[in-house]
Design a protein around this nucleic acid. Structure first.
Lengths: 250, 250
DNA sequence: AGAAGGACCAGTGGTCCGTA
DNA sequence: AGAAGGACCAGTGGTCCGTA
């Protein structure tokens, strides 16, 4: 129910197979493949090996008969790991790029909107954030490449992308050129956010809430803590200045 | 920390004895006694019987030496039950009136504000609603006459009081005069709220959120369900009208 | 080694039901 | 009987750590 324009755009099979376990639905978008998440792919024929079926978009491998070890199929397939890409860059090999990462946040927002519409229709309480309920919905609906630990892990990266796309793009370029891994880039996303918070009275919650696409995400604990710590040390150093108080002495 | 004007007004001992169990702090305001919640009362002498110590504000019984059964003291004392009173009326006997009930909601809001200030100071996430955390705080602080089941039970009664004090007052008078009990009055509070919701597009969440003192309370499940059911049956009956559709046919 | 995500855990919202 | 509230429970936010 409650289809909207997003559904057509995202091209995902969101209302199908609510009973079916999500094993066969994950779509690991390799490179530019992420415009076509895999929910739509599986049909009534069950997967005998499961694995390749699910991971090989980036190989253009539509062949069902790949071999891969003797294990009975259906074991869960992980998404390809992210690599640092610059804006517009397509990840090569069994990797996903950062445009795809950010796209997952947009998709997640669309799922939230659906969950909200369903809740409103039913007169139930309506989530304002991406909650467990939303992640359960993405699973049910076959979009199991969206999961809670992953989305929570990179929220602050998406926040930087939303709040200062220029800075976010520049950081991606720098870290790509340096050959840094995703973990290093992810860590580096904190600092610019703390700087933004400093400019806005350190209220990171207010900053998230003021941005329509960011407001639906919980502020990550570590980001909150960094802002708090930095605020305190900023206050401490400014109060040491002779002439004192919390104001700049000029 | 973070004392504010409310503290002085409420007269409660909120920052004391965080270690002490709450057993000796509950203050059952009988009648007009509720301006002086009992948190402040206990001192370093421990209660030997506990019970009377805690319940007898309405008796003006400051005497420590009441007898009451041989049981070792400290058993929890319940608040006096509510009775339907009209506005300004003081409950007699071992009863509490509805002004006192509504006062508990105001107090609870003050406790929330303190919890929020503490959270902000610490850079922790800041509750926007009266959560378990707030109830834990009221307990810790000796205001154990505020508890979750009670506050949730009467939220919609408080909502009516906030949203249409005239109607609320009239309902109280009516039910008092009829000699109805609190349960009957409580049930009767639902209907006027549904009527208010009908006028405002059935969005009971929006109605709560638009009111500053009500916004901090979760919409009670039953009220939400009533609004939903009533909306649907209103829609159904209007769509039956010849000339059809969801609009009035004139 | 670096990274994805199943699965766990402490504390939540919600309210039932043993208690007085 | 009517009512107050301790205590339970399903599902939450949060993220660790066994996995690949």
């Amino acid at each position: 129910e409650t289809n909207n324009a997003f559904d057509a755009l995202s091209g995902e099979g969101l209302s199908e197979e609510p009973m079916q376990k999500d094993k066969e639905a994950a779509g690991s978008g390799g490179g530019g493949a992420w415009e076509v998440p895999a929910g739509e792919r599986k049909q009534q024929q069950r997967r005998r090996k499961g694995q390749r079926r699910v991971v090989d978009i980036d190989h253009d491998d539509e062949n069902e008969d790949d071999e891969n070890g003797g294990s009975v199929g259906n074991e869960r397939q992980r998404e390809h790991p992210f690599i640092v890409t610059e804006p517009g860059e397509v990840a090569r090999g069994k990797k996903n790029g950062l445009d795809y990462l950010f796209h997952l946040y947009e998709q997640c927002r669309e799922f939230l909107i659906r969950v909200q519409n369903i809740a409103k229709d039913r007169g139930e309480k309506c989530p304002t954030k991406v909650t467990n309920q939303v992640f359960r919905y993405t699973m049910k609906v076959g979009a199991s490449y969206i999961n809670k630990p992953k989305m929570r892990h990179y929220v602050h990266c998406y926040a930087l992308h939303c709040l200062d796309e220029e800075a976010s793009n520049a950081l991606r370029k720098t870290f790509k050129d340096r050959g840094e891994n995703v973990g290093a880039w992810r860590q580096a996303c904190y600092m610019p956010l703390v700087t933004i918070a400093a400019r806005q009275g350190w209220d990171i919650d207010a900053i998230f809430n003021a941005h329509p696409r960011l407001a639906i995400w919980y502020v990550p604990t570590k980001l909150r803590q960094l802002c708090h710590a930095e605020r305190n040390s900023a206050a401490a150093s400014s109060s040491v200045i002779p002439g004192g108080g919390d104001h700049f002495p000029f």
